[in-house]
Design a protein around this nucleic acid. Structure first.
Length: 229
DNA sequence: TCATTAATGTGTT
DNA sequence: AACACATTAATGA
């Protein structure tokens, strides 16, 4: 796959004509980021817009006790970053590559100039940010009122939506998440998540994948469990 | 493959 | 929910 193909897969860019993609490609060369790299942090904020061509990044914050709380995971075709005029998250956010990741970096100046010439891009950006905000509010509501099981099921449904591949009756997550990782996304403890997952396995809602620690989810069963709550 | 480290399951408080 | 501890899985030399 070439660089332009990747660019065309970015949410924000998908309807842009080829000439525009070429221009962005000139401004923002592709770079390869190894697994585990902190791309941006409160200590060293990067005022730029990142185009995630391939790979996955995790956005998280540290709470008062220094524990991580995961705000979200972004996959192929997503954008993230922060400049004065907009932000895809809040401040004090860490962005870490969960696997080897191909990124483009658009600096603030280039981005803003390009936006001025192409108002449709700004409108698209607003749409993406609005959608993120809506999802964040939905997640907040769940975190505030749901049981751990409910929160976990909600999270899994979101993950399947973004990272799920159909495997027969199940959907397998194209993500390697430990119980600790899941716990950090729903504000629960690792032990509770383990116990809840065991219970859901007994009920046939989830199952192990080919690798024992890959998760598979039975969407229909999950829906019926969620509805009877 | 085997030793070491990481993740998970579970009982107790 | 936190902790301790046993078991099991993943990693990498």
């Amino acid at each position: 796959m070439n660089k332009l193909w990747y660019l065309s897969q970015i949410n924000l860019m998908e309807e842009l004509p080829l000439e525009d993609l070429k221009e962005i490609d000139r401004m923002a060369p592709m770079s390869k980021t190894p697994k585990g790299t902190i791309i941006s942090s409160p200590e060293e904020p990067q005022p730029a817009l990142y185009l995630l061509k391939k790979g996955k990044v995790r956005l998280y914050k540290l709470n008062r006790e220094g524990k991580e709380f995961t705000l979200g995971i972004l996959g192929d075709g997503n954008i993230f970053g922060e400049v004065e005029t907009f932000s895809t998250g809040t401040r004090d956010t860490y962005v870490q590559a969960m696997e080897e990741t191909l990124l483009c970096v658009l600096n603030k100046k280039d981005l803003e100039e390009f936006m001025k010439e192409r108002p449709s891009l700004a409108i698209k950006l607003i749409g993406i940010l609005t959608e993120r905000l809506r999802e964040a509010e939905e997640m907040l509501e769940n975190l505030a009122y749901g049981s751990v099981q409910k929160r976990l099921l909600y999270l899994l449904s979101k993950l399947v939506h973004n990272f799920g591949n159909r495997k027969g009756v199940y959907w397998e997550l194209d993500l390697r998440l430990s119980h600790q990782d899941l716990a950090a996304m729903i504000g629960a403890t690792r032990e509770t998540v383990s116990a809840t997952l065991s219970e859901l396995t007994r009920q046939g809602v989830i199952a192990k994948g080919r690798n024992k620690r890959d998760l598979r989810i039975h969407l229909e069963k999950m829906q019926s469990v969620m509805n009877r709550e």
